[in-house]
Design a binder for these strands. Structure first.
Length: 961
RNA sequence: GCCGAGGUGGCGGAAUAGGCAGACGCGCGGGACUCAAAAUCCCGUGCCCUGCAGAAGGGCGUGUGGGUUCGACUCCCACCCUCGGCACCA
């Protein structure tokens, strides 16, 4: 019999507008019973969508279709992140106005969504570049300004020379621009900031209440970077005090120098006259370094002595003040105390500059180690040591012995006694002791350090060039692992706190400092304030006016929006290049004044858009607070992990701010977050012709233009690398349903995955089988209207019936739980297979056939809505799929089926027995059935059963000897 | 360096609560259809060994080494590797 072939193009065109026309995707915004706010991160409309983008939108569409069938009142809006640098740069490349570029792309995106069958509540469409949207972005700026959370400050900022714009810290990725990857430079500029640091603690703490992927929360946690420690005040001889932040106040007695960031404001005042030239030169050199160069850990620790001294508040010793570029102005107080014995960077710095190192924390291992250079001891020493149970080993340049900490007090005098006349020795681990025949010097202060060093130099001419005891000890390989350590341990050489055990050291020192008014407990964050000024045209103008008389004056709310001026020129312009934009009367005094010529960072636009969807056309307010408070937080937010820090942190901040302002009752915008993985595809690189589209690659990976061998890399699809798969072509060849099914089936949606042409064909073959099966069943059972009666089922029917219900269960649970829709598709495929086999039986129950097909169509409809809508109507069900409730499963159907129980004997599966589920659920019954079965009996012959474990519905394990 | 995720057939992956390892798909092999090919459909497919007309049987197997358990991809200890984020953050 010749059946009508599956013709996806014809079917899909037929239904493309159906769902929209019926209004299935329109949220009933006034009704908030059983509401569900589903949100895909809105795109920046760039060119065309590729198959990789489908990961996000198709997943969302499937979830929303499922939710609608489950009876949820779903809000599923879409908009355009259309303002900002990305759009502007792309438009410049095309030589057109950013607005034209944006709207052309929006039309294209919408066409492609329609082709995919991806639907939204289009009545709520917004674009951040439209005045009725950015008016409210400006309003948020004004509110932040009112509260002192938007401020202007001069400082070193990140500057991207290629984009001609400043960048926020979050937009510098590994020292490079997030858009164009150029190395970022530093410039001294006056810019606008949002005080996100005021929210650091809450942004950190509230991560706990979010149902987000653990790694995204961790990334935010690390970015916020909370550190607990103490702020300590160091007096200086020149006068001004220096505040330092440290996480290790317990090492204070070991602070032998101070280091300021080269940009530190106190540097000029603290510089001695004779050091001024050197200091200025160093500061200038630091300025010229890029972020990448400056923060490279490989770099030698450079720095310059200011020529003046501070006082260590604990030891009261004079310590030199230096500047060095490894100390950053933006973190803590921009100054550190140098504790070379217990901080790796300070240690390197001290070694490079010959600064003294004083150990003040015992090595956590409790070990001490003795070193004696060759010829340093008398022949009587080994015997004396042996009496203490200490055995020395010879190394290239001397003898080494392990000394238990508690033996130290006895070893040192002994050592002194048996030392050669011109000998010396060192014991490190529990502090450093330098032993001479007539005395032992404990390195516990700078004075002792100096004295020990000078004696060493006198004894051993080879040490003449050493500038510190640390240099001497570091040169001995056998001691290195004990000379430096950064662990917690018992405090040493620390005056009143000596002997304080490691776990209490920090707390005790902090208390000691606070009692004396020398310092206090403090918390510091890595998070910096959000720099939001951008010197480019395509963005929301900052609503501020600079008046020569009144200073900086905000534009009154009633005068919003500050409209972006129209321009005819295309290029890297800022508002400063548009003279007619600048003049404006001062809102306060009415005199002539000038508009601020910066625009806002694109991430400001997207930091509140999820609120606007509730009342997108409201002209009087940014959003309707009453409805927003009913609909938000967003129940499920889906987007790329690349926004883990940037957008998601900013949106959380603005939400908390609006909450504090009283506009929002909630303080976290996205209850659950799901990050989908990228789609990769091979990209081909020719040294002369650059990126070559995969389709043009010649056999043997050759360039079509020059025949050169191409370099292949499997990377995320992107237009610039020309390795995109076009949905238009896929749809023309296979249909949208095939692309959708493959996209959802190819792997777990959160994982990065490579696109496979063969995989697409697999989805295509499945849909053919499904189509043919449906037509077969329609022929055989199309007219049946009765429901099947499970009471009359034979074993085959019962098995199929159970399979149907377990499939419904599986698919439902995936949508409601972890969203591993790839396994839901696999389950549907399995069921389709079993249904096909049953349908071939001429005696098959038509009522069961029809019911199975009906439910199968519904289960598959979120994945492949076109073919399912078509078959649904052929089934004559009247209503549309989306008006039909999602199938429910019957636990009874599952209970009645037989299950196969594997039987393990001594850990190996030796038999499989079919048992009715009711019996399998009861351990005793299960055990009895298994032991009675012939297969098991044969296996147990000659063995004595020692133990039986029966796991209900799973397996039976028998131990026999 | 620090933090996080992960390592399962030829490949993508499954095993959701310690209970049949390899679901589902790709690829591959064989067959059907065809003059032929493509497409499609059906069957088989972890590795190794024994065996055979067809069967059947056994051993090994989830990065490596150890441990807990009747039973480990799953839990514990140590290590190796890959990917992602951060990185002179005091």
């Amino acid at each position: 019999m010749n059946r009508e072939p599956y013709n996806p193009q014809a079917i899909e065109e037929k239904w493309r507008d159906f769902w929209r026309e019926r209004g299935f995707f329109k949220a009933k915004i006034q009704e908030t019973r059983k509401k569900f706010y589903y949100l895909n991160m809105f795109p920046y409309p760039s060119g065309k969508l590729h198959a990789g983008h489908g990961r996000n939108y198709i997943l969302g569409d499937a979830i929303v279709r499922f939710l609608l069938m489950r009876g949820w009142n779903v809000l599923n809006p879409m908009g355009w992140d259309a303002f900002g640098l990305p759009a502007e740069n792309a438009a410049i490349e095309q030589g057109i106005h950013p607005r034209d570029w944006t709207w052309t792309n929006i039309r294209e995106f919408k066409r492609q969504f329609r082709a995919w069958g991806v639907e939204y509540d289009w009545d709520r469409e917004i674009a951040t570049c439209e005045p009725d949207y950015y008016k409210w972005t400006q309003w948020i700026f004004l509110k932040l300004y009112e509260r002192g959370l938007a401020y202007r400050a001069k400082g070193k900022v990140n500057w991207c020379p290629h984009c001609a714009v400043v960048l926020a810290n979050e937009q510098v990725i590994g020292g490079r621009c997030w858009r164009c990857h150029s190395p970022v430079e530093k410039r001294e500029l006056e810019q606008w900031y949002f005080k996100i640091t005021a929210y650091a603690e809450r942004l950190l703490r509230d991560l706990d209440k979010l149902d987000w992927p653990e790694h995204v929360k961790k990334m935010q946690e690390n970015w916020i970077g909370r550190s607990e420690g103490a702020e300590i005040v160091f007096p200086t001889e020149k006068g001004p005090e220096i505040k330092v932040f440290t996480t290790r106040p317990d090492t204070l007695w070991g602070a032998t120098f101070l280091v300021l960031a080269p940009e530190h404001p106190l540097v000029p005042e603290l510089t001695a006259w004779e050091q001024r030239a050197a200091v200025e030169a160093y500061r200038a050199a630091t300025d010229r370094l890029t972020e990448v160069e400056r923060t490279s850990t490989e770099k030698e620790k450079t720095g310059v002595f200011l020529g003046t001294y501070a006082l260590n508040p604990a030891t009261r010793e004079r310590i030199p003040i230096w500047i060095a570029d490894y100390v950053l102005m933006g973190y803590g107080t921009g100054a550190i105390m140098g504790v070379p014995a217990h901080d790796e960077r300070d240690f390197q710095f001290a070694l490079s500059h010959g600064l003294p190192v004083i150990p003040v924390i015992a090595h956590p291992s409790g070990e001490a180690r003795l070193f004696l250079p060759s010829g340093a001891f008398a022949s009587s020493l080994p015997a004396a040591f042996a009496s203490l149970g200490i055995h020395a080993e010879s190394t290239e340049d001397g003898a080494v012995a392990r000394v238990p900490a508690e033996q130290l007090a006895r070893v040192l005098p002994l050592l002194q006694r048996h030392m050669a006349e011109q000998g010396w020795g060192a014991v490190v681990g529990q502090g450093w002791q330098i032993v001479f025949p007539d005395e032992t010097i404990n390195i516990g202060s700078a004075a002792e350090e100096r004295r020990a060093l000078s004696r060493l130099k006198t004894i051993d001419p080879a040490l003449a060039d050493k500038r510190s005891v640390a240099e001497v000890l570091w040169a001995i390989p056998a001691l290195r692992d004990l000379v430096f350590h950064a662990g917690f341990g018992t405090m040493l050489n620390s005056g009143p706190l000596s002997g304080a055990p490691g776990p209490e050291a920090v707390r005790k020192t902090t208390a000691w400092l606070e009692e004396r008014g020398l310092g206090k407990a403090a918390v510091t964050y890595k998070l910096r304030d959000w720099l939001i000024s951008r010197q480019r045209y395509w963005g929301a103008p900052i609503p501020m006016i600079h008046c020569p008389r009144c200073g900086i004056v905000p534009v009154p709310e009633k005068d919003l929006p500050v409209l972006l001026p129209e321009v005819n020129r295309i290029g890297k312009l800022g508002l400063a290049d548009i003279p007619e934009f600048i003049p404006a009367p001062c809102p306060r005094c009415g005199g002539p004044a000038q508009r601020d010529t910066d625009t806002m960072d694109t991430f400001v636009d997207s930091s509140w858009y999820f609120l606007r969807f509730i009342s997108p056309k409201d002209g009087d307010r940014p959003f309707d607070p009453e409805l927003v408070n009913k609909w938000l937080p967003v129940d499920l937010y889906v987007g790329g992990v690349e926004h883990a820090i940037l957008h998601l942190l900013y949106a959380r901040f603005i939400t908390k701010f609006l909450h504090d302002l009283g506009w929002l009752s909630f303080d976290e915008p996205f209850k659950r977050l799901f990050t989908q993985g990228m789609v990769t595809y091979p990209a081909f690189w020719c040294p002369t012709h650059h990126w070559i589209p995969p389709k043009e690659v010649q056999p043997g990976n050759r360039c079509p233009k020059c025949g050169a061998e191409l370099t292949v890399s499997v990377v995320a699809m992107s237009k610039s690398k020309k390795n995109v798969v076009s949905p238009d072509e896929l749809i023309a060849q296979y249909g949208a349903d095939t692309e959708r099914l493959y996209t959802l089936f190819m792997g777990p949606p959160e994982k990065e995955i490579e696109w496979s042409e063969e995989g697409v064909r697999g989805a295509w073959r499945f849909l053919h089988r499904f189509w043919n099966l449906a037509l077969l069943i329609l022929e055989r059972a199309g007219n049946t209207r009765e429901d099947p009666d499970p009471r009359g089922f034979g074993p085959r029917e019962q098995a199929l019936w159970a399979k149907l219900h377990s499939t419904i269960k599986k698919v439902t649970e995936e949508f409601e739980g972890r969203l591993a829709l790839n396994t839901a598709v696999a389950a549907i495929m399995e069921f389709t297979h079993e249904l096909s086999q049953y349908a071939e039986d001429p005696a098959a129950d038509p009522r069961l056939l029809r019911r199975a097909l009906r439910d199968l169509i519904l289960l598959l409809s979120p994945f492949t809505p076109f073919i399912c809508e078509e078959l649904w109507h052929r089934l004559g069900e009247g209503k549309a799929v989306l008006e039909t409730p999602w199938p429910s499963y019957d636990p009874q159907a599952l209970a009645e089926a037989e299950v196969e129980i594997p039987v393990q004997i001594n850990g190996k599966v030796r038999a499989r027995i079919r048992v009715p589920r009711a019996k399998a659920a009861d351990p005793q019954a299960l055990e009895a059935v298994v032991l009675a079965s012939p297969e098991v009996q044969v296996r147990l012959q000659g063995l004595r059963v020692e133990k039986i474990i029966a796991v209900p519905e799973k397996l039976v394990s028998i131990v026999a000897r």
